[in-house]
Amino acid sequence: MRFAVISFPGSNCDRDLYYAIVDSLGEQADLISYTSTDLSKYDTILIPGGFSYGDYLRSGAIAKFAPAMKSVKAFAASGRPVIGICNGFQILTEAGLLPGTLQHNTNISFISEWEPLEVVNNKTPFTNQYQVNQKIKLPIAHGDGNYYCDDDTLKSLKQNHQIVFKYRNNPNGSVDDIAGIVNRKGNVLGMMPHPERATEKILGGQDGLTLFQSILNSIKVRSLS
């Protein structure tokens, strides 16, 4: 199984993700540049957190035009898994791969805390190793994590079971306590919490590792069928 982690200028969680895949999960990963356009040898694409392009204009607004993003769109359209974490989630919404927007936290503070979450949907390639309604704990670290979408979008997110993770004590003002969503097809995940920072006990928790194990499981199941 080979994962690609795309580094943009200003990404700062790319090495954490690489570590989570290679050292914690025990699979192969490459750190690739935002200028790379050939994603053919990868099974999963990971878009890391950080401050791509300094968060100029809006978080993720400039990164959506990076050369790699065209290939990410094609990769996503082929049905293979794509995950955007934190700034990666912001990039995926700006690129139109996920609905809604991440805006400033309602209290305008940067929040760096372990947050209790609930797994709302465990029937995705990213959550199949969790129990439904399982209570988990992952770190968040963001200033722009306040998920916003209009009422019609929220309705369709609910109807299509696209809400995957919810905050149990909404820290940032997100609509409907949303912490992570998938696209309609279910193969693109965006989430503000950082699973890659919760893959070993010594880091404070292992609930993030389950997410990466879920991807592994879904790819294995797919290749058997």
């Binding site: 204009l57 809006r58 035009f65 919404t93 809604g100 916003y148 979408c149």
Partner: peptide, 8 residues
């Protein structure tokens, strides 16, 4: 294309 996020 860029300057405005029409969602918000």
């Amino acid at each position: 294309d860029l300057l405005v996020n029409q969602n918000m």
